[in-house]
Amino acid sequence: MNQPIGPTSDTILYLSGVNKTFDGFRAINNLSITLDRGEMRAVIGPNGAGKSTMMDIITGKTRPDAGRVVFGASTDLTRMDEPAIASLGIGRKFQKPTVFESHTVWDNLLLALAGDRRARFTLRARRTAAETEKVEALLETIRLTSHRNRLAANLSHGQKQWLEIGMLLAQDPQLLLVDEPVAGMTDSETEQTAHLLRDINRTRSVVVVEHDMAFVRALGVKVTVLHEGSVLSEGTLDHVSADPRVIDVYLGR
């Protein structure tokens, strides 16, 4: 395998020649993507294009058969598991809102706050003033201040999505992976979410997987089109929309 040029100093995520096969099905096929520090990238593609598998590989849920996945300057993600990768500063939001339903909004954020994750710490941990302050600030950001004592189970779908984004922020990640954040949201919630993501992008790099073209347009960022496990096209939304190959496999259908 030819050795590709290494990531530059302002690259936060670098995938090169990544392959993953499930039972003979090539989910990821020689995939190479470079994400700059501070960049927000939208990833689109038809079902089965490998978007979720790509997320799984970056977050350590799935191990690639071949290829390099590098975070920051030189951290090889292919050798690490989910908690280790999360602790590096990569947060992941699932498509279906995944929050701790039987905890309050407050406790959801408290558990997500960056800090010691070991059992010997949590057995004795007391809530500190700094933690209280951070949680309050997060509640403000995700507009759930008045819901702080409600159980997450009792939130609306949109509020759960926001809470989950708040939990990601609490982790203080450098890179956020967001899987279909506006699925099932109302139009105004979708708009607010686009705002929120742009806000977040001021300080962190973001990868958004999305089907909703209006939302991708609202984000106004570089788009990567995946097809059959590799990059089909890359550029502005207008650029990729005009790409005949993209029209053929995805947009035109």
Binding site: P83, T98, V99, F100, S102, L110, A112, A119, T122, L123
Partner: peptide, 23 residues
């Protein structure tokens, strides 16, 4: 305790605790 909260969180959404960095 906070340990207990992590435990309940794990019961409700184990993969989420993992992606938050808990083991």
């Amino acid at each position: 305790s906070r340990f207990g909260k992590v435990m309940v969180a794990m019961r409700d959404a184990e993969s989420r605790t993992r992606f938050l960095g808990y083991r």
